[in-house]
Nucleic acid binder design. Sequence first.
DNA 1: CGCTTTTGACCCGCGC
DNA 2: GCGCGGGTCAAAAGCG
Length: 340
Amino acid sequence: MQQLGMEELQGSAAAVPPPPPLDDESSSSSKYYYCNMMTMMSDAEAAADGSGARRRRESMVNKLISTVYSGPTISDIESALSFTGAGGDQQQIAMDDGRNSPPPVVFSPERVLSKMENKYTLKIKTCGGNGGLAEDGYKWRKYGQKSIKNSPNPRSYYRCTNPRCNAKKQVERATDEADTLIVTYEGLHLHYTYSHFLLGGGGGGGGSSKKAKLHPPPAAAAAAAAAAAQQEEEDEQQQMLLSSQHAAAGCYEEEEEDHGVALFAAADQHRDNSGITDDDNRRTNGLLEDVVPLLVRRPGLVSTTTTSCSPSPAPSPSSSVSAWNHHPYYMDMAILSNIF
DNA sequence: CGCTTTTGACCCGCGC
DNA sequence: GCGCGGGTCAAAAGCG
């Protein structure tokens, strides 16, 4: 039987297209702007910080983030959405990496909203047949598989396991390139597991249970979150949007000379702003109790080696649960906490 | 026991 | 209207 291995499918989600050419000065000094709404660097601290030290710190943050985040970037998404909106559905990832867009685009919910219905497709190059291990950090449940006409490879259909999230993706192997996966995302995530982010998955040592998986959102999800929130007319999701906007605004204030943007928003802040209660959050089936650490990154800034390559083929997971507990996301948060 | 995957059936849109 | 193809549903089975 021919079907995609789970590791490939999972890996495909996080793999990103080749980075745009890094031929400008920004590439060497690329960094992320780190906006934290909870515990990291406050605006006051940032302002008081020496620029040299801050740059060093940002550089470290950039590296850390680039290490852990390999999902589509905000520009990836915007570009893809624009492209699909124009009639196609194949993403052109070689978009400008900020050079042609003067102000760093954090994420503009409104912009994404207008394009929400579109899908975007990523072509993912994997290393070998089963080596792809990169993940997008979300938990997907496979709900169908179809053999496609004129294609020897079946197409798998995945849906986000969050009942309130309508994100879907389709994964199929390219017919002409055996090591290329075509991943089509449809709908976007509006959730994030806060506890995972802060507590390191709760289980510890990568042995955490499936429910303790970290779900760091790709930039796509971050952008989409706002859009999805808008689509959803439920109050808590609109509150989520407000939170996201707030975070984005904070990033704008940080600095503007570079293209990188790393944005984190925490549910705590979100609750502070919105005034909703924990009970409210719980009622949202995880959408609101989830944190909204929005990780928004401009492409091509740090080595986006997203190769879904793995030196050793990993055993095929028994489920589609993304093994983020193996990924150092929460470790990085601890590191970042120390840095700041 | 709960969750996920598998897989055949069903539904729906589109072209002829 | 009919057939085809793609997308989804849902029951059954598998797994930890």
